[in-house]
Design a protein around this nucleic acid. Structure first.
Lengths: 166, 166
DNA sequence: AATTTATGTCAGCCATGTTGACATATTTTG
DNA sequence: CAAAATATGTCAACATGGCTGACATAAATT
């Protein structure tokens, strides 16, 4: 396409755009039914997920990951703490920090939800050939903002270590 | 894992779960900046997208795709119509229907947003080898509810024909 | 003629995002 | 040490986009 020209129909990756929409919709839809029973929403799910994956994370780090304001986070975090899914502990080095940890109850719920989504993922990989997992990982990684990719991968690796260690 | 056992840490596909979260976040983030200038949100984007892709679609079909109530749709649809991005025409066979069409203005905006997302997709495929597009398409398709997959694929194929014809 | 269907609308509620202002405790810095 | 910066929390108000329930209209179907 010449510089400055309007995009034509055929230039758009309609298939991927729409498949991503539907795939993501079903993917996040799985946990919704379970969350309903706890009177929680997707916001709670996201918070619980990342706290469980990164035990002892700072509130500021969570805000960065979720990309929301502290006021928005505050509301759902308070509910999760009040209902015993998450605890906050004063930082050892920096006592201003309120480090976040999932309780046993919180971890159980987080795992339950992750397992639901994992079933969908494994079902998909089972239908596709070997190498599908690696291909999906590479595709999704390449879809992330390049100036963010490193951080995300580091975060995932760090979380894997943290949870394997524990 | 034995039947009835609790899911263990290692059983969860953490990498895919989190990569999908971040990839989708960046993917839908691209259009947001543009939509801001029109005082539109993601709800408007979704409506405009599917109407543009499926000229003459029924309101009921749009509701099925978006999986929202007619009241929710009504709000954003009214704004899109009032501002000249979408028109509604009485059905020829069934005059109860209000068939939906994107105007030239609506098509231009829809294409602009799709092009933004396509740039990200093509950038990703450019970084990966050949076959990445096909692999992504297969992965995303397999992630969709199996009892829905056929319908989604048919819908995409139909839309391709409709827009290529026009 | 009666019923069903496609669509629209009013009213109100809820979840979750936002901004702005301000408070408190703690750490860091000049 | 005093002052400034940082980490977190909180109050208040508001916007978006979901939801339910009730009801209205026109057109098609039975």
């Amino acid at each position: 396409m010449a510089a400055g020209a309007q995009p034509r129909e055929a230039d758009a990756a309609w298939d991927i755009i729409e498949l991503l929409f539907f795939a993501y919709r079903d993917f996040v839809g799985d946990p919704d039914a379970v969350l309903l029973k706890y009177a929680f929403g997707r916001a709670h799910h996201r918070v619980l997920h990342f706290v469980n994956r990164n035990p002892g994370m700072k509130v500021a780090d969570l805000l960065d990951i979720l990309n929301i304001t502290k006021q928005s986070l505050g509301r759902v975090l308070k509910q999760l703490v009040d209902q015993g899914f998450i605890v906050q502990k004063e930082g050892a080095q920096d006592r201003r920090q309120r480090l976040l940890y999932a309780t046993a109850k919180g971890e159980a719920l987080s795992l339950k939800l992750a397992h639901l989504q994992t079933e969908r993922i494994n079902r998909a990989f089972g239908e596709l050939g070997p190498g599908a997992h690696e291909a999906a990982r590479r595709f999704l990684t390449a879809m992330i903002d390049s100036d963010n990719r490193e951080g995300v991968l580091r975060q995932i690796a760090r979380a894997d270590r943290a949870k394997t260690r524990g």
